[in-house]
Each structure stands twice: as C-alpha cells, then as structure tokens.
C-alpha cells in the first residue's frame, strides 16, 4: 500500500503508523462526561467502506495525516495533514506529482 504524504509524496505503508479512527472526538479536557470519554477511548466506527483515519508518517516527516481509505479495497481517496495549518505546505508536493 502506498500513502501519499502531503509533504514526502507517495511512500510505502511500512513508513507509517496507524493511529486509528479519525472520527473520534476528544471531550474537553475537564469534561467529566464518562460516556463521552468512553466513546472517545473505546468506541470505533469501523466501517466497511470509506474510513476517515489518522496515520503518522513516523518513518518520514512524522506528521499525522488524515486519510480516507476504503477498508474493503484499501484504495485511498484523500490524504491531508491532520494539522490543517500544514496543508498549504503540501501544495508543492502535490504539484510535483501532477
């Protein structure tokens, strides 16, 4: 599997660490809502189809990416930095590719 890191370009999956379901919402730090914490820590969407997930390019730029990947076919339809403010940096790489 290849994941196109917005900074590093397409790289082999071996360079990435899967960080799971990207739909999870962390409650406010001071929240005492145990249901919300439980949902955040333990519950997963786990769809059969497109999945919004977080990967870290741990063997590259170490940035975290938000990846939409199909869990039935492993096709990746989008990747972006999990940090929105880095996505402008990615432009250059995207242009390299095209």
């Amino acid at each position: 599997m290849l994941i196109t890191c917005p900074y590093c370009g397409p790289r082999d999956v071996i360079e990435f660490t899967y960080q799971g379901d990207g739909n999870r919402q962390r409650p406010q730090p001071a929240s005492q809502n145990l249901d919300a914490w439980n949902a955040y820590v333990y519950d997963r969407l786990n769809p059969a189809g497109d999945h919004n997930e977080i990967w870290q390019h741990s063997g590259g730029c170490r940035a975290h990416l938000r990846v939409v990947r199909n869990t039935l076919t492993h096709e990746i339809s989008s990747t972006a930095f999990a940090r929105g403010d880095h996505n402008s940096v990615a432009r250059h790489r995207a242009e390299d590719k095209s």
Partner: peptide
C-alpha cells in the same frame, strides 16, 4: 528553494527540509 524537501548545499554548509516547517 520553496517546496517540500527542498534543499541546497555549498559544499561546506548544507540545508534541506525534511518535514513541514522543519
């Protein structure tokens, strides 16, 4: 140079980008 992974060297000093902003 602009762009991800851009770099330059003069034989004594070298610099290159390896991550966003780094």
């Amino acid at each position: 140079p602009d762009g991800a992974g851009g770099g330059v060297t003069d034989g004594v000093r070298s610099v290159f980008g390896f991550a966003p902003g780094k």
